[in-house]
Amino acid sequence: MSSPLTLPATKAARPRTALVAVGAALIAATYLYLVLVQPAEIAEGIGGTSSLITLFGFLGGGALLVAGILPSLSTSSLVLMPLGIALNIAIGQTAGSLGLQIYLDAIGTVLVAVLAGPAAGAATGALSNAIWGLFNPLALPFAAGAALIGLLAGTAARYGMFRRVYLAPVAGLVVGAFGGLVAAPVAAFMFGAAGTVGTNALVAAFRAVGDSLLVAATKQGLTSDTIDKLVVFTLVALLAYALPRRSRAQFPFLRRYRVLAGRTGSAIGR
């Protein structure tokens, strides 16, 4: 459907695996370092070095991921990405200003991941937070977590978690748990776990019981993120099934892995 008119169809370049691997390793190393080494330091109340490491590790890792993934994407996935990013920012900004306990800022990422696959989802997540950073710098350090959400959502879609509407919330719950774990050190070391009014009440409750800041932020992340992703995955599943067949037919990922139940435009796509 999207064959170029001026050039013979060229195969999409292979993803630059080395860049992706280095990016992922950097993010994983940053996370492990923050969780294993720093909890002693935060008790004294100073976290400048850990903020710096958080910022560089997660942002740099996200940038490497994007650099590795972008050359391999098809034009139709690439055109989908700005759409997902704009949806993320528009909806996330609204949810944040309403003071909800959940963020809803991953609807676009998950939608792109379901329609175009894990690689496009990961790139959308990372770029989305980078661009959102232009309007709301507080979103910037969460870029790596958003990339992980996109990657996992796409993988879940590839293995059929969106074929039944009732499976999508389950996938959301699991992905949300991972997302919460990754986001917690960012929240704790960059912002002292201060978030919106809603998430703050949760952190305060865990702190009142006597948890350390990282533990309280992790528990809050596990609570908020699982519920948030459960809602987001359900919404995206409902959205994807509500799309007209013509719109679904333009995404080869949907056809190849039979992401959605039913005929998924195979009659048109062939």
Binding site: T6, S76, V79, L80, L83, Q250
Partner: peptide, 14 residues
């Protein structure tokens, strides 16, 4: 937005 994106894909490819 998806329909717009599909059109944009073809325009860009062209």
């Amino acid at each position: 937005l998806l329909i717009d994106a599909a059109e944009r894909t073809q325009l860009l490819e062209a």
